[in-house]
Design a binder for these strands. Structure first.
Lengths: 253, 253
DNA sequence: CGGAAAGTTGACGCGGGTCAAGGAATGTGG
DNA sequence: CCACATTCCTTGACCCGCGTCAACTTTCCG
């Protein structure tokens, strides 16, 4: 009986790109059954990782892309004067490590924020497989292109926008990304600290805190530490309106 | 005689990736002779373009990457409230249009700043050729990865750095890029207006102007409108030092 | 020569950074 | 189970870097 249970579990628990609910956000998007199996062969799955563990650090030999199945990551780099600069957050279905494509080493670091399941996709194998599967290649280009677009969106935000607009934009980005993963777009837990948010948005941590308080005051949010409820999505949208470029309705990665 | 002249010119003027002096900065880097000929077949070369002409605008169907042979480009997008946000500048040997990889349309615009020679590389053909030439595919990934790294560098700059550090970083970036193209790293013409510089760096145009004056005062630069001479490269380097991340010596695109 | 665009310079004020103090949640050892 | 430390967050007071406004100069171009 024990044995039967065991084998059953093995089957049930087998994770693969084919039964991953995030497949249509991640690399497998648009791939055929047979192609998926080939992708499965090159994906390495680890046991869940704990907060504070690093996938890679700046200078590490660039080795793989990392797809988040569950949990979240923070990417950042360290400046000469020892300060951290947060570059972004990776949510389920998204990829980290793309900056490793540019050279032999990563330029940034990637650290786990909460207990997370991560898929590892070694560059070498990915390249070879791309060679055989044009659809995979196309999807990779697409994701890389989106990363660039999304970075450009941030450039816009940091270049011109007020503290209020930045935080509103950040919250909307999270909301959109959670919704596309089938999670609530209005009730979620922030996986990152105020420190990280401020750093990411180019604001002092005190400013972030004050804005959260103010948004709550104005009945736009309900905030309790990391638990956020968006009350008035519409007002948030109006705040960021001047930030959005015209034709393409902001498609943040 | 007229005929002889004619044929001679045709031979002399034939531009191709094989005899392009920028080949080792651009896509052909690391490709074999035979492979280069294949790349040549898919590259479209236009007659020189004039300032103000657009390669593409936001919402245009994304169709090609553009390589600059000579001259320079500005990429930017327009926000809902009609303001322009400059995203970057493309110098000889560099590529524009990568954000078109992310979707069916471009998210940004690309405009010619000075009379320029541009090579057009249609996505479709590029993809097909990548499928046949792994070295091309690898080089494309590399350039795309660098684009991401470079955007991240800008995020850093805009997020945390003072006006002085931003302008110093900008000047050093130009210097580095001109040097790698075999041009003088200390004497060059700015292809863009103060307006564009300020917009790009997230600064008011007046601030840029004042900083140029101040740098001149401190004997770091000689500036006359768009003509710039860097007098004290070392001081500039010290200014940006806190911006640079540790391990990889800043490799701006 | 005239009008527009680009760049410079000065005066002023505000958004948000900095500093400082305190509260709330979580961990730690006795 | 309770003192105590630590980390994370909040709130208030102050002030400075840089944006804004305005006036002027220089260059460009028809």
């Amino acid at each position: 009986m024990a044995k039967k249970n065991h084998t059953l579990n093995l089957d049930d628990l087998k994770v693969s790109c084919q039964n991953c609910s995030l497949a249509d956000l991640c690399l497998p998007h648009g791939m055929a059954q047979e192609e998926l199996e080939q992708l499965d062969d090159i994906v390495i799955r680890h046991r869940p990782m704990q907060p504070g563990q690093h996938l890679f650090r700046p200078g590490d030999r660039s080795y793989a892309l990392y797809a988040v199945r569950a949990g979240s990551l923070k990417s950042y780099c360290i400046t000469e004067d020892g300060e951290e600069q947060v570059l972004g957050f990776t949510l389920p279905g998204e990829l980290a490590g793309m900056d490793g494509l540019g050279g032999d080493t990563y330029a940034s670091a990637s650290v786990v924020l909460e207990t997370s399941s991560i898929c590892e996709l070694p560059f070498e194998r990915l390249q070879s497989l791309c060679h055989v599967l044009p659809s995979l290649n196309r999807q990779m280009m697409k994701l890389v292109g989106r990363e660039i677009t999304s970075d450009q969106h941030m450039l816009m935000l940091l270049g011109k926008r007020s503290a209020e607009e930045r935080l509103a934009s950040f919250l909307l980005s999270l909301s959109t990304r959670y919704r596309s993963r089938g999670l609530s777009p209005t009730e979620f837990n922030l996986p990152m600290s105020r420190q990280d948010i401020g750093n990411y948005l180019g604001l002092a941590i005190e400013t972030v805190s004050r804005l959260f308080a103010q948004f709550q005051e104005r009945n736009i949010l309900r905030v309790n530490r990391r638990q956020v409820g968006i009350v008035d999505l519409e007002t948030l949208r109006q705040m960021v309106e001047p930030c959005v470029s015209n034709p393409s309705l902001s498609q943040q990665a």
